[in-house]
Simulated assay, not measured.
Amino acid sequence: MDKSFHRFSELFAQLGLPNDAAAIAGFVRTHAPLPPAMLLADAPFWSPAQATLLREELAGDADWAEVVDQLNAALRA
């Protein structure tokens, strides 16, 4: 398993979203807070492909898992 360190901007690019600092901040402002019981990948704003990516990265504890967890925390703040 690759233990690379990934940045928020790289995750957003991987998800096919604008990945500059202003776009990321705007995304979090628009979509937060998620309901406490809702899984990140179940949020209604993800496309099916985005939701699958998020689920797979968390389920497999893949190299993106840490930054996905950070996104999850940011959307619950």
Rank of each mutant, 00 (worst) to 15 (best):
A77C: 05
D69W: 12
P44D: 14
W64M: 11
R76Q: 13
A77Q: 11
L17G: 03
T30A: 09
A22D: 13
L58R: 08
L34R: 04
E57T: 02
P35Q: 01
L17R: 07
V67L: 06
V68Q: 02
R7H: 12
P35L: 01
G60F: 01
A62W: 00
P33H: 11
L34V: 02
S9N: 14
A22L: 09
D69K: 15
Q50Y: 07
S4A: 11
F45G: 07
K3N: 03
Q70T: 01
A25F: 00
N19F: 12
M1F: 00
A43L: 09
P44Y: 13
R76T: 11
L54N: 13
R7D: 15
E57Q: 12
F45S: 11
A62C: 00
M1C: 02
L15H: 03
T52K: 14
P33L: 06
F8C: 11
W64D: 10
E10R: 04
E10H: 07
I24S: 10
S9P: 12
R29Q: 04
R55Q: 04
E66I: 06
L54G: 12
L40S: 09
P36F: 05
L71H: 01
L71F: 00
L40N: 09
F5K: 13
Q70C: 02
A13R: 08
L71T: 00
T30F: 05
A41G: 05
K3L: 05
D61T: 02
L39P: 05
H31T: 03
A77D: 07
R76K: 15
K3I: 03
D2K: 03
P36R: 15
F8P: 07
G26H: 14
D2N: 04
S47Q: 15
A77S: 10
A74D: 03
P18M: 12
A51T: 11
H31W: 02
L15D: 05
A23H: 14
M1G: 04
W64P: 06
A13E: 09
A59S: 09
L11V: 09
S47I: 14
F8A: 10
F45H: 10
A13N: 10
H31R: 09
T30Q: 15
F12K: 13
D20L: 14
I24V: 13
T52D: 15
R55P: 03
L75E: 07
P48D: 06
M1H: 02
Q14S: 10
H6V: 04
S9F: 10
L71R: 00
D69P: 13
L15P: 02
F45N: 09
P18E: 07
L75D: 06
A77W: 01
Q70D: 10
M1R: 02
A37H: 00
L54F: 05
L39I: 04
A37L: 01
L54K: 12
S47W: 12
F27I: 08
G16E: 13
F27R: 15
Q14M: 10
T52F: 08
A74W: 00
D42T: 03
R55C: 05
S9D: 15
A62R: 02
A23P: 15
F5C: 08
L39W: 03
L17D: 07
D61F: 06
R55K: 05
W46P: 03
G60T: 04
R76L: 11
